[in-house]
């Protein structure tokens, strides 16, 4: 089989084909880590680039991510500790008072597609829940999302809670969402700001010294 097809069908969001080809590749003895690192991660990077170039929009991104997740569901249980190390661990959530999750989900999918391990806390997440998740998961990064001007202050409250718990020096904080700007990130002491899902991946990699 032509392994490159896994890449191509992931980019085009054909989940049944990606699943079929992944199973076929495994049957032919290809290592699970190789399928992820050589085909799935580059495919999602290409999807992110096309999104940034306005060639892909949210629907195309969602179906590509679905195809990738279908393959990961097969591959992850087969990975051994030496196969593929995650690029890092990210705790992500939409902050307290805010129920919007599309942007947060897109960032989560793209980070997963870039090889990060994700702890997704969902929406309307109080600061203490972020603190607990960082403690338990030993995350490298906390990613905070907000759609509303009125819920943005919860980002600062969350950063303050990480500080109070003595965790702030251990994690990088990245923020994003409709009203969020670099200036606001600077104001509240976040380490990074990203205007969209693909740049969130880039910024996270930069903050962890991976790019």
């Amino acid at each position: 089989m032509e392994l490159r097809q896994i890449y191509e069908y992931t980019v085009s969001g054909n989940a049944p084909k990606v699943k079929e080809l992944t199973e076929q590749a495994l049957a032919e003895g290809v290592a699970p880590g190789e399928i992820i690192s050589k085909y799935l991660i580059p495919a999602m990077a290409e999807v992110g680039d096309r999104f940034e170039r306005n060639e892909f929009y949210v629907p195309e991104l969602l179906i590509a991510a679905r195809a990738m997740q279908g393959a990961l569901a097969i591959l992850k249980p087969l990975l051994t500790d030496t196969d593929l190390k995650p690029a890092g661990k990210v705790v992500i959530g939409t902050v307290k008072g805010d129920l919007h999750d599309i942007g947060k989900n897109l960032v989560s999918m793209m980070l997963q597609g870039a090889g990060f391990e994700i702890v997704d806390l969902g929406v309307d997440v109080p600061p203490e829940k972020f603190v607990d998740a960082v403690k338990q998961s030993k995350a490298d990064v906390v990613a905070l999302s907000a759609l509303l001007t009125t819920t943005m202050p919860s980002m600062k409250t969350t950063i303050d809670a990480l500080q109070a718990a003595g965790l702030r020096e251990r994690v990088k904080v990245v923020i994003g969402g409709a009203p969020v700007t670099q200036r606001y990130a600077d104001e509240i002491g976040a380490d990074g700001y990203a205007p969209d899902a693909n740049s969130a991946v880039r910024r996270t990699r930069q903050l962890l010294g991976l790019a």
């Binding site: 306005n54 929009y57 949210v58 629907p59 195309e60 409709a178 205007p195 969209d196």
Partner: peptide, 12 residues
Amino acid sequence: GHRGGTMVHPDH
């Protein structure tokens, strides 16, 4: 739309 563009592809 959202801040980065349209909610779906312009062709849609």
